[in-house]
Simulated assay, not measured.
Amino acid sequence: MFFLKKKETKETFDRELKKTRESFFSRIKSLFFRRSKLDTDFIDHIEEILLSSDIGTETTIKIINNLEKRIQKEKYSGNIEELYKLLKDEIESLFKDIKNEYLEQKIEEEKKPYVIMMVGVNGVGKTTTIGKLAFFLKKKGFNLIIGAADTFRAAAINQLEIWSNAVNVPVIKQHMYADPASVAYDTLQSAKSRKMDVVLIDTAGRLQNRVGLMEELAKISRVMKKVIPKAPHEIMLVLDATTGQNAFEQVKQFISFVKVSSIILTKLEGTAKGGVVIGIMDQFRVPIKYIGIGEKIQDLKEFDGKKFIDSFFIPQM
């Protein structure tokens, strides 16, 4: 289901997600530890904690309904420790059918260069994430090139250049307000001639101009296919975890006009709203491939769903 790096310990993961863990886990822990048996308002308290953790109304209702069905079906005895395990099992079950492959495995299996188009609204950390992803993949041994196709913000182009210099990865750019599809075309041509493994294409994030953005991303895809027929192989949506429920709306908007294949969730270390991970994966069935847990270039980690949920629950009551 999800992949786990052996060197990543549970303690490390807990530390990276401290705010989310403490917000959710401390309230769950307090609820279960101060009760010795199930009473009439216990499930209501669980529902309140789930909702306040930005898991979302739809997913919370699903968890609570399933929990109540299991309690009835399994003739739950009222033991609080059993209920604690049932709650964890129900949350884990939401992810069991979501396939989340290693990106490097997919790159190896495809004819190179492997093209990744990065999408997301302005302000979510998309450009920074591209730099971190370039660093991550370069450490895996891949040769990369970046295309600065967000030509509507000079800051985006400059920021990409700073990151590319730090990672020692070439960046293809044009002047501000240049045609983004033209930048993408030049980048793919350069990638082919240099025999690159991976191409990262930055795009604009002007979601307020939804029609224009939809047409722009569609044009970029069409133009890239003239160079590499399968491009883009992957469309990664970058979301800011600190926005909580707004992240749900961004997913809805983007999947309505592009085929989002995976998600990167940034700024997860700085928010107590990490429950949004559970809601997004349940409602949209799109795998979260990476999480951003800091400002440093190495602060992009492969996401592990089981470990994420484990961090919410202590092993034993």
Results as ranks from 00 to 15, higher is better:
residue 34 R to Y: 09
residue 35 R to V: 09
residue 35 R to E: 11
residue 36 S to M: 14
residue 36 S to R: 15
residue 37 K to S: 13
residue 37 K to V: 12
residue 37 K to R: 14
residue 38 L to A: 05
residue 38 L to D: 05
residue 39 D to L: 10
residue 39 D to N: 14
residue 40 T to S: 15
residue 40 T to A: 15
residue 41 D to R: 08
residue 41 D to V: 04
residue 42 F to R: 00
residue 43 I to A: 02
residue 43 I to P: 05
residue 43 I to G: 06
residue 44 D to K: 13
residue 44 D to P: 06
residue 44 D to F: 08
residue 45 H to N: 13
residue 45 H to Y: 11
residue 47 E to K: 11
residue 47 E to D: 08
residue 49 I to Q: 02
residue 49 I to D: 02
residue 50 L to V: 01
residue 50 L to K: 01
residue 50 L to W: 00
residue 51 L to A: 05
residue 51 L to H: 04
residue 51 L to I: 10
residue 53 S to G: 07
residue 53 S to L: 02
residue 55 I to W: 00
residue 55 I to S: 00
residue 56 G to Q: 04
residue 56 G to P: 10
residue 56 G to I: 07
residue 56 G to F: 09
residue 56 G to V: 07
residue 58 E to C: 00
residue 59 T to P: 07
residue 59 T to K: 06
residue 62 K to A: 07
residue 63 I to L: 03
residue 63 I to Q: 00
residue 63 I to V: 08
residue 64 I to T: 04
residue 65 N to P: 02
residue 65 N to H: 09
residue 66 N to S: 08
residue 66 N to A: 03
residue 66 N to M: 06
residue 67 L to C: 02
residue 67 L to S: 02
residue 67 L to A: 00
residue 68 E to A: 06
residue 68 E to N: 10
residue 68 E to H: 03
residue 68 E to Y: 01
residue 69 K to F: 09
residue 69 K to Y: 08
residue 69 K to L: 11
residue 71 I to G: 05
residue 72 Q to Y: 13
residue 72 Q to C: 10
residue 72 Q to W: 12
residue 72 Q to R: 14
residue 73 K to E: 13
residue 73 K to R: 14
residue 73 K to Y: 12
residue 74 E to R: 11
residue 74 E to L: 13
residue 74 E to H: 11
residue 75 K to S: 12
residue 78 G to F: 04
residue 79 N to E: 14
residue 80 I to F: 01
residue 81 E to M: 00
residue 82 E to P: 00
residue 82 E to C: 00
residue 82 E to M: 04
residue 82 E to S: 06
residue 82 E to I: 07
residue 83 L to A: 05
residue 83 L to P: 07
residue 83 L to T: 03
residue 84 Y to D: 04
residue 84 Y to L: 05
residue 84 Y to A: 05
residue 84 Y to S: 04
residue 85 K to G: 04
residue 85 K to F: 09
residue 85 K to V: 09
residue 86 L to T: 02
residue 87 L to I: 01
residue 87 L to V: 03
residue 87 L to T: 01
residue 88 K to M: 07
residue 89 D to M: 02
residue 90 E to W: 05
residue 91 I to K: 03
residue 92 E to W: 07
residue 93 S to K: 15
residue 93 S to V: 09
residue 93 S to G: 09
residue 95 F to T: 06
residue 95 F to Q: 06
residue 95 F to S: 07
residue 95 F to H: 09
residue 97 D to W: 08
residue 98 I to E: 04
residue 98 I to H: 01
residue 99 K to F: 13
residue 101 E to W: 11
residue 101 E to R: 14
residue 101 E to F: 14
residue 101 E to M: 11
residue 102 Y to A: 14
residue 102 Y to E: 15
residue 103 L to T: 06
residue 104 E to G: 10
residue 104 E to M: 10
residue 104 E to Q: 12
residue 105 Q to S: 15
